[in-house]
Every structure is written in C-alpha cells, then in structure tokens.
C-alpha cells in the first residue's frame, strides 16, 4: 500500500527513510495520475527492499507542490537522504518508468 502523505508526514518520510523515496504528486481529478497509480502499486510491491513509494495530493498540500515547483501532474520525484535525485514528469507504462529509475535505486 502506498501511503498518502500530508505536509508533515512528507518531511518525516523524506528525511527519515533509509531507502530512496519516490513521491508521486497527484490529485483526484487527474486522469493520467489514475492511470499510473496501479503501476506504482506494482513497483512498490516488487521493489519493497529498494524503494519506498508514497504519494501526496497537490490539491490538499499546495505548499509542498509549490516548494518543489511541481507544475504538472503526475510528477514523480526521487529523493535520497532528502535530496532530489531525479524527476519524472507525466504518466507512462511500467517498462518506461522502470527504465527511468534504472541505476538510481
């Protein structure tokens, strides 16, 4: 299960996680976000030991979205020790997404 963060738990996971953290910036009204959600669930299960995935609703947490300059959703940001290592903008298939994460996790 991918947890839904708020502004406070966002910082907790970002700086508290041992694993790289992939955050999915999404919203309920965004179709391409819905399409990528089941793919993230699959990757979450398969890569449990390598990656921790969480999501944050930009509608409810506009400050966080603004802080990270997110202007398009879905946007996935990969953080390692709280530092942004990669940013993936737009929905895509599983193979394409794994390719983008390759070498980073």
């Amino acid at each position: 299960m991918i947890t839904n963060l708020d502004e406070r738990s966002f910082d907790e996971i970002l700086f508290g996680s041992e694993l790289p953290v992939l955050i999915d910036f999404w919203a309920t009204w965004c179709g391409p976000c819905k399409a990528i959600a089941p793919i993230l669930e699959e990757i979450d299960l398969e890569y449990k030991d390598k990656l921790s995935i969480a999501k944050i609703d930009v509608d409810q947490n506009q400050q966080t979205a603004t802080r990270y300059n997110v202007q398009s959703i879905p946007t996935l940001i990969l953080f390692i020790d709280g530092i942004e290592k990669a940013r993936i903008v737009g929905s895509m298939g599983k193979q394409a997404l794994l390719q983008k994460l390759e070498g980073l996790i």
Binding site: G31, P32, A65, N69, V70, Q71, I73, V89
Partner: peptide, 16 residues
Amino acid sequence: LLGYGVSTCATCDGFF
C-alpha cells in the same frame, strides 16, 4: 520545459 510551464494536458495542469 514540458512539465515546467509547457503542457499537453489542460485538465491535468490547469490547476497550477
């Protein structure tokens, strides 16, 4: 700049 001001999806990105 796709995703940084340039968009192909108004319903996804209009909000920003």
